[in-house]
Amino acid sequence: MAFYNRVGSLLRQGISQNGQAPMASMLNSARYMSSKLFIGGLSFSTDDTSLKEAFSGFGDVTDAKVIMDRDTGRSRGFGFVNFVDEEAANSALTAMDGQDLNGRSIRVSVATERTGPRPSSGGYRGGEGGGYGGGYRGGDSSY
Rank of each mutant, 00 (worst) to 15 (best):
M68D: 01
R70L: 03
D100H: 14
T62D: 12
G103Q: 14
V61H: 02
T62K: 08
V81C: 05
N102A: 12
A92C: 14
F78H: 04
D71T: 09
G79D: 00
V66R: 00
N90V: 11
T94F: 07
G103C: 11
V61R: 00
R74K: 10
S91V: 15
G98V: 03
V61E: 13
R76I: 03
G98K: 14
D97P: 00
F58M: 03
E87V: 11
K65M: 02
T94K: 05
G103E: 15
V61T: 10
E87N: 10
G77T: 06
G98M: 06
S91A: 13
G59F: 01
N90K: 13
A92I: 10
D71W: 08
T62H: 06
F80R: 02
V81K: 09
R74D: 06
E87A: 15
S91G: 12
V61I: 11
D63A: 12
T62E: 15
T72C: 02
D97T: 04
L93D: 07
T62G: 04
D97K: 03
D71N: 13
L101V: 12
D100L: 11
R104P: 14
R104V: 15
F58K: 03
L101P: 02
R76N: 06
G59T: 06
D60T: 13
G77Y: 06
Q99F: 08
A88H: 07
E86F: 00
S75N: 04
F58T: 06
D71G: 07
G103F: 14
F83D: 14
G98Y: 09
N102M: 13
D60S: 10
V81E: 04
M68G: 02
T94A: 14
A95E: 15
D63S: 11
R104M: 13
R76M: 05
D100N: 12
N90H: 12
V84W: 08
G73H: 02
A95V: 09
R70I: 02
T72S: 14
I67L: 08
L101G: 06
G77N: 08
E87I: 08
G77H: 06
L101W: 13
G59E: 05
E87R: 08
V81G: 04
T94M: 09
N90W: 10
D100P: 10
T72W: 00
A89W: 00
G103M: 13
F78A: 05
M68I: 09
I67S: 00
A64C: 02
D100E: 13
A64V: 04
E86H: 01
T72M: 01
R74A: 04
E86K: 03
I67Q: 01
T62A: 03
V84M: 10
D69F: 08
V84G: 02
Q99A: 05
E86R: 01
A92F: 13
F80Q: 02
N82I: 06
A95I: 05
M68P: 07
R70E: 00
E87C: 08
R104A: 13
T62M: 13
A89S: 14
G79R: 11
V66L: 00
I67M: 09
F83S: 09
M68N: 01
F83G: 11
S91N: 15
F83V: 11
D60I: 14
L101Q: 09
V66K: 00
R104Q: 15
D60V: 15
F80T: 01
M68A: 01
N102V: 13
T94Y: 07
K65I: 03
L93T: 13
